[in-house]
Design a protein around this nucleic acid. Structure first.
Length: 564
RNA sequence: CGGGGCGUGGCGCAGCCUGGCUAGCGCGCUUGGUUCGGGACCAAGAGGCCGCGAGUUCGAAUCUCGCCGCCCCGACCA
């Protein structure tokens, strides 16, 4: 492609809307433009990079037996009512004139199609996938393309008659995803994740570490353990028992509201303080107890209670239920609450907690003796430097961007949609489903987050819009123009993807700056400086390293570089 | 949805507090000339419902009210 002909509006200055490197560079390098919040137009260069990613996706999905579909983005609203997903908050954009919705994902359509045509266990397994635009009612789009209202997703769906079949397809996806992200030039890791509102029995997320990431993950510094903070297991030991075990006693704690203030006021160790956190679980009051300053993990709490909605109780509700305010709540003689405690408190005694009267606490609490508990669970959020649950090495807690997510869905959607098969015994069984997703724009954006410098993007050759950026340094030297044109033809005929900066109105310096901004892996520079010695300059974008080669050797040199 | 910021030629911004001359600067764009290996220079130009709507005023980019849009933090997150 000649740069004089292709639409690549580069920007010298940073657009005011962009705050993170990938967003800034995707705008500056002319890959895309924003139409409205969370919605982007991809320009030729940006779309070429996306197509490179999509090609990798197709190759790897085909390699594990995937069949490519194209499902409709417009869905009847009724289909989503059937699976009870129509009213999930912030999920679905709808078209009111026709009772249609814009599909945010495609379990429903897959289930509909399977219900219609998959009749027998002999029709399974199936692996269906597509690469398609998705729509979501994001309350706050942000970070450029990392969280949009419209985006392209590779989504696949496995259909199996048996749990073993699902496990196989799930594993095949996990391996395919690793190949996809490796081929895309990303440094990534895999974490165990919460299935959340998707339901199902297991899920893993593919993550790219980044300060701008919205997810928090715990990674072991010693072994392979890595998990989303929502489910990362705590390995901190229990606080155990103290030898003295006197009877309960009230202590006055005037105006003490926080755990730290209580520890200071009583001169007590945090380990002997049982913190109360009050929630509603599907509307019903729940008290969760934690050690000292441990932070409650809401995902774990929900799981401990058998799933469902958990949310903090309002201060006014709390007062009317207990007669006390937050800060003075405790588990002893608390009526009307389900009470769960963190594992660290199992069988502990000598504890201090609220007395359910303002400005009063209880001491010498023995959980075995004094508290009617509904169970111990891992409820706390892990923190940096804690021991890993697998190897006791130090955990590191960091931020990450989710680039892929795989789920073992089970039968939730097939049951809702009556997608069943007859098994060997003629019994009707719901199809066992898995679903697997990769955000295409996120791969491109994360790649730029990981591969850029002060001058611009540094593309990996696998997803670079072009492999080679050919520059004619000065367009008023006949020899330069002639040589550059010959090279352009030669490289293109040699099968390389070449972007040729043949602009006549732009200075050499300007072209060099643009080339570094656009970031193709190799720059080939034709100029009088090199031609004096009958040489062409080849520059490697990532390192800035330059090699002078003879005209006839340019193609083979580039092929060697690109193969390495 | 809560908090904060912003909205002025294509892009980046100043002006607004303290109302008033022809709305200004840099980049980009057009034309001509000189340059020509790290975002060249000179000259002459084009391009503005100052987000939208009400109001206050002799007079509003500037003050008041309402609305819309965009960004950031938080909440939320199949």
């Amino acid at each position: 492609m000649r740069l004089s002909k292709i639409f690549v509006p580069t920007l010298k200055e940073t657009p005011s809307d962009a705050a993170i490197p990938s967003h800034i560079l995707m705008l500056r390098a002319g890959l895309m433009r924003q139409l409205t919040a969370g919605v982007y137009a991809f320009l030729p260069l940006g779309y070429r990079a996306m197509r490179k990613v999509m090609r990798i996706l197709r190759e790897e999905m085909d390699a594990i037996g995937g069949q490519e579909f194209h499902f409709p983005a417009l869905n009847p609203e009724s289909l989503w009512i059937q699976t009870n997903r129509r009213n999930i908050p912030n999920l679905i954009l709808s078209i009111k004139e026709r009772d249609l919705v814009l599909a945010p994902t495609h379990e429903e359509v897959v289930g509909w199609l399977a219900a219609m045509h998959i009749q027998s266990y002999k029709d399974l397994p199936q692996l269906w996938y597509q690469i398609q635009t998705k729509f979501r009612n994001e309350p706050r789009p942000r970070s450029g393309v990392l969280r949009g209202r419209q985006f392209i997703m590779k989504d696949s769906y496995s259909l199996d008659a048996t749990q073993d079949g699902l496990d196989l397809q799930y594993e095949a996806h996990a391996e395919a995803y690793k190949r996809i992200f490796t081929r895309s030039g990303l440094k990534f890791f895999v974490v165990g994740a919460s299935s959340g509102a998707m339901g199902g029995t297991g899920s893993q997320e593919f993550m790219v570490e980044s300060e701008t990431g919205e997810d928090t993950v715990a990674i072991c510094s010693q072994c392979s353990y890595a998990a989303n903070i929502e489910i990362a297991k705590s390995a901190l030991p229990g606080v155990g028992r103290v030898s003295e075990n006197p009877a309960l006693a009230e202590i006055a704690t005037p105006n003490v509201r926080t755990i730290d203030a209580l520890a200071a006021f009583l001169d007590a160790p945090l380990e002997r303080l049982a913190k109360s956190v009050v929630y509603r679980h599907d509307g019903k009051p729940v008290l969760a107890l934690l050690v000292g300053n441990d932070q409650l993990n809401e995902t774990k709490l929900s799981a401990a209670l058998g799933g469902g909605d958990v949310r903090p109780m309002d201060a006014s509700e709390l007062k009317s239920l207990t007669g006390a305010d937050g800060g003075s709540i405790g588990p002893v003689n608390l009526k009307g609450f389900k009470i769960v405690a963190d594992l660290r408190l199992k069988g502990a005694n000598g504890l201090i907690s609220g007395a359910n009267r303002n400005d009063m606490h209880l001491k010498n609490i023995d959980f075995d003796r004094d508290v009617q508990l509904d169970g111990y669970h891992d409820l706390r959020t892990v923190e940096s430097d804690e021991p890993c649950v697998q190897c006791a090495g130090a955990l590191r807690v960091t931020h990450a961007i989710e680039i892929g997510h795989i789920f073992k869905l089970g039968t939730k959607y097939s049951e809702a949609l009556n997608a069943t098969v007859l098994d060997e015994n003629g019994q009707s069984k719901p199809i066992i489903m898995g679903s697997y997703g990769i955000g295409v724009e996120r791969i491109v954006a994360c790649h730029i987050e990981q591969n850029h410098d002060q001058h611009g993007i540094v593309w990996d050759k696998a997803i670079a819009p072009f492999q080679v950026h050919l520059i004619a340094a000065s367009m008023n030297s006949k020899e330069t123009v002639l040589t550059a044109n010959q090279l352009y033809r030669m490289l293109a005929e040699g099968g390389l993807e070449v972007l040729f900066d043949d602009r006549a109105s732009v200075s050499a310096g300007f072209k060099f700056k643009d080339a570094d901004l656009l970031g193709m892996p190799f720059q080939v520079i034709v100029g009088e400086r090199g031609l004096k010695e009958k040489k062409i300059e080849v520059k490697r974008r990532a390192t800035g390293e330059r090699t002078m080669v003879l005209f006839d050797d340019v193609l083979t040199t580039l092929r060697t570089f690109l193969a390495s």
